[in-house]
Design a protein around this nucleic acid. Structure first.
Lengths: 144, 144
DNA sequence: TTTGTTTTAGCAAATTTTTGCAATAACAAT
DNA sequence: ATTGTTATTGCAAAAATTTGCTAAAACAAA
């Protein structure tokens, strides 16, 4: 995970952007929060440290990372959450009833991806898909 | 479209909720805005009318309809948009570069849906999927 | 109809997110 | 090292969204 951080720090400069301490701090925070962090969680984790950070910077920087495809943004049970995109893409199934989030392996989306390319010439960003629905537990009545 | 409205008005009561003028107004607005409306567009359309509506009510009611699966919420180019869910589900491909939104027919998702059921016992709400990526135009250099 | 119960709307305040602008600080080039 | 250019930050204000609470009004039942 620290591995991604270093890689991404380098990429920021390679892609022509400036590597600021704030950007590194936010990447650090996302790493240590370990997936699915809200903007506020990122802010609070950094705020404790010596030169604190501004909220606007957190929002702007998260958007910046999303644009660079280093971070994904998704909606989970009403909250907007951010996560570092790793080499092997992974996706999420979110239960609409109990809020449970489970992992969806990438290979399930391979066929869909191909179809989109063939039928629409569309290259999907399939590194952060979030699908909502009802999980196994809630269907069997456990979640009620 | 007015067809869905009537159907949904009935359903609100059938499902044990109250049919208020505000709920009907918001459904009307969503119909006449014809897909992909923001909360603010809904608000402004209704605000013009005689007994205006409160913004909080618009937000709460849209969330209520989403919960009832009558309306879908999705992110399109940074904006949160709402759309009435119709009998035949349809999905969207949103281009990350030019913002273009195109339709994705439901049958492309049939296989994925089956796999989710089989592998995870998960019943996906596949009536409002939004997939971001890069459209054909932008790939051929038109969008630059 | 009228009455009672309970959900829903409106209001105002809180919270979250975005934006414009001036000051700061990366980075390149000297 | 120093300087210049330009991206990025911080700040403060604006805009968007959510929330708690009370009043209003749907609906069921008399």
């Amino acid at each position: 995970m620290s591995h991604y951080r270093l890689n991404y720090l380098q990429q920021i400069r390679d892609r022509g952007y400036r590597l600021t301490p704030q950007r590194a701090l936010i990447l650090d925070a996302l790493c240590s929060l370990n997936g699915h962090a809200t903007a506020n969680q990122v802010y609070e984790l950094i705020e404790a440290q010596a030169p604190a950070i501004n909220r606007a910077t957190v929002y702007r920087t998260l958007a910046f990372f999303c644009q660079l495809q280093m971070v994904s943004e998704s909606q989970m049970n009403g909250a907007t959450v951010y996560e570092i995109i790793q080499e092997r893409p992974h996706h999420h199934l979110v239960c609409r009833l109990c809020g449970d989030v489970s992992l969806l392996e990438d290979h399930h989306l391979a066929e869909l991806s191909q179809q989109l390319t063939q039928a629409h010439g569309f290259t999907a960003d399939l590194n952060h898909l979030t699908i909502s629905g009802i999980c196994a537990g809630c269907q069997s009545g456990v979640g009620e």
